[in-house]
């Protein structure tokens, strides 16, 4: 295999960002909207990966946090007026964070497979909460007639109704989420979280408050999922209980796996790959779910570390192996 010269570490992220900024000027509006959706799902997947990849906590209720924020936007939006972004966004993120705090405080008393089952059950509880009670239109869902805006003294500064403006706002928030997650992962907090994932007993005997560290990570992860949910609700102008369903959670987990758990931005790539795949399959195949299911199974069996495993095959091996020192989360204790 031919060796690939090492690129400066900032080059690839910089080029990706430039491409992302240039994108809406080059492609039709439909693809700008698709890119917004991919960024939103990428935010959700990256948020989830803080719990799954960094914390070793396989959560099946992140769609619930995602949906709660969407519902907060729907419930706080005036019927004939645009909601204020500066007011509703913090409120939505706060609500998701609180939901994550409450569910995390209970679920984190358990480990491994229990944790998966408990998060799944509590996520479904929130689903049924919006499905069965009349809040937010019950099983029919609720419309958000006008996208939120930033306005000062009645003058509109930012109108999210324009696809391009919406895209740039989402892009800015995505970059912010990446920066926040990178900071977290590289901080002593992030190292403690990873230590608890790799060897809980040792981390505990070293004196780390495991429960508190995990709860903080889970809450931040849920709040960031809420951030993504806010923009998803704003983009589609509609919320329904299905937004909180566990199929959504599992799909996002698939994005995390496809992108790879080892890096902060991997899940963003995973979201892009899976959404792109869905788009192609839906356009060409009546039984697209069958194909998607088989592809997910194939990826689990053949590429346990995500599509990045394919890169050395495509571009050759890098000269030096990156020494990140991270190992796949060990959650095997049942």
């Amino acid at each position: 295999m031919r060796a690939r010269p090492r690129l400066p570490s900032w080059l690839v992220p910089f080029l990706c960002l430039m491409a992302a900024v240039a994108l809406p000027f080059w492609v039709p509006t439909y693809y700008t909207q698709f890119a917004s959706k991919a960024l939103i799902m990428g935010m959700l997947a990256m948020a989830l990966n803080l719990a799954v990849g960094q914390g070793g906590l396989v959560s099946l209720c992140h769609a619930a946090f995602f949906g709660v924020a969407g519902y907060v936007l729907a419930l706080t939006s005036p019927k004939y007026d645009a909601a204020s972004l500066l007011l509703t966004l913090p409120l939505a993120v706060l609500a998701s964070g609180l939901a994550a705090l409450a569910i995390g405080a209970l679920a984190l008393r358990t480990r491994g497979v229990y944790f998966i089952m408990v998060t799944l059950a509590f996520g479904e509880m929130l689903y049924f909460f919006f499905h069965d009670t009349g809040i937010g239109g019950g099983s029919d869902g609720a419309f958000i007639n006008l996208k939120p805006e930033i306005a000062i003294a009645g003058r509109q500064l930012l109108d999210l109704d324009k696809p391009m403006a919406f895209y740039f706002v989402v892009l800015a928030f995505t970059v912010g989420v990446i920066a926040l997650l990178l900071m977290l992962v590289r901080s002593p907090f992030g190292h403690a979280l990873a230590a608890a994932r790799d060897n809980e007993r040792r981390a505990r005997s070293l004196g780390f408050p495991i429960f508190r560290i995990r709860l903080i990570a889970f809450t931040i992860s849920g709040a960031l999922a809420g951030l993504a949910g806010y923009f998803a609700a704003a983009q589609f102008g509609f919320v329904a209980p299905e937004m909180l369903g566990w199929h959504q959670s599992a799909t996002v987990l698939a994005m995390v796996l496809i992108g790879g758990l080892q890096s902060v931005t991997g899940p963003l790539l995973g979201a892009l790959v899976l959404l792109g795949l869905e788009e192609v399959l839906k356009a060409n195949l009546a039984q697209w779910k069958l194909a998607e299911g088989l592809i997910v199974i194939a990826i689990v069996l053949a590429l346990p570390n995500g599509v990045r495993q394919l890169w050395p095959l495509l571009f050759g091996q890098p000269r030096q192996k990156p020494s990140s020192g991270k190992v796949a989360p060990e959650t095997g204790r049942g």
Partner: peptide
């Protein structure tokens, strides 16, 4: 012997199928 994430996702794929 695989981690729980792989088990969750493989069985989720099975559900779709």
């Amino acid at each position: 012997g695989r981690d729980h994430l792989a088990q969750v996702l493989l069985s989720f794929g099975l559900i779709l199928v």
